[in-house]
Design a protein around this nucleic acid. Structure first.
Lengths: 199, 199
DNA sequence: GGGGTAACCGTCCAACTTGTACGGTGCAGA
DNA sequence: TCTGCACCGTACAAGTTGGACGGTTACCCC
């Protein structure tokens, strides 16, 4: 943490602070848990270390409460806002990662039994449907205040995403036997068939 | 690395070794780079440390070449195979993660300009289409040898996945202005419309 | 055959990250 | 008043990371 390079957690801290005004690390932690955390966990220790570092770099400033909980509020500086906006304006990103142990188990499926694969498919479908359900509920909570449209869009993507995975895993479960017998061709992957015609 | 708990990298080492027979850490590194690595990077240092640890746990055994490169080959033991198969047979998994800086930038899109969002959308669409292209080429390389069906299925999912993201980002680019003016409702997310009717 | 270079193979380690344990404050309800 | 829970933050041991380094073999071109 002694380097001057900004990492993703830095921009989360800057972005949340820019949006919310005075923000404690605890606020940051909750913000992440309730939004970004659903697809990208940040260990909370980092959300305490990072704002400190950003203050040293002049991108945030802080003031602490005198009494009581002595909470420490961070605010974004002009330099911080500039750094954040430069990041936003740069469309390039690191290679996206997808850490899905279920897919890894499927990858190695041939080393197990068809029953393993079917059970995996069914369980993963359930998990994905629960997540979908949660995401649908989140959308209902949106209150239409301006400034949330972009989040809403990521939420919609999340919904589509979970739907796609649920459909995928359902097919995996349905075709576990076929797969084991080498008939991968018979799996149509219907869930993406309509997509193929998009032009 | 002194604990006895197995992590994902452990199962990758066990699985690849089970499938390939005698395997060096370097082989492991290449295997990961050419398959799993496209959605889940494992630092190579871990692929050297992990087999050593697994040998200490009795799940792998090794023998080293005498001369030349003194390569160290690992093989799976019965205990190792058992541990791996138990893992495969367990359909539960850790919460999947999706580390996508592009989505994060979109999340904070309201703090930037519509042009930022459009540029982001266009760039991300390109990136996704390149990945899709690569995945389509991979499929052409499959030789139909048995035992690869499960990988092929994950590859197909990867293709659907990239297609979906490409379509999503295209829409983001197309609707950057609408978004900035609060008209998120006008974004149909066509790319998932057909999905919605799935039972 | 010699020289260059690229792929092969592995180790090391300083810097960084992570999870977990801990310790305290303030509020609300029993 | 007491008890529990949400709030708020720190500390640090253990583990992870990426990049530098160093040697070997195969191959190609001259």
């Amino acid at each position: 943490m002694s380097t001057t390079r900004l990492v993703v957690a830095s921009y989360i801290a800057l972005g949340v602070t820019a949006r919310r005004g005075p923000t404690t690390s605890y606020d940051l932690k909750r913000y992440v848990a309730e939004s970004i955390g659903y697809f990208w966990q940040i260990p909370h220790a980092q959300l305490y270390a990072e704002p400190q570092r950003l203050e040293d770099l002049g991108l945030l400033r802080s003031r602490s409460e005198e009494g009581g909980r002595r909470r420490r509020f961070f605010e974004i500086t002009d330099a911080g806002r500039e750094a954040f906006e430069a990041w936003l304006a740069d469309p390039s990103t690191d290679a996206p990662e997808l850490r899905d142990t279920g897919l890894l188990k499927l990858h190695f499926g041939a080393l197990g039994t068809p029953d393993d694969v079917r059970a995996l498919g069914e369980h993963q479908r359930e998990v994905r449907e629960e997540r979908l359900q949660r995401f649908l509920e989140f959308e209902a909570q949106y209150d239409g205040r301006p400034g949330q449209e972009h989040q809403l869009l990521t939420l919609r993507l999340g919904q589509a995403y979970e739907r796609m995975f649920a459909a995928f895993w359902q097919q995996v479960a349905d075709s576990a036997e076929d797969l084991a017998e080498g008939r991968v061709g018979s799996i149509e992957l219907r869930f993406l068939a309509d997509e193929g015609e998009r032009g």
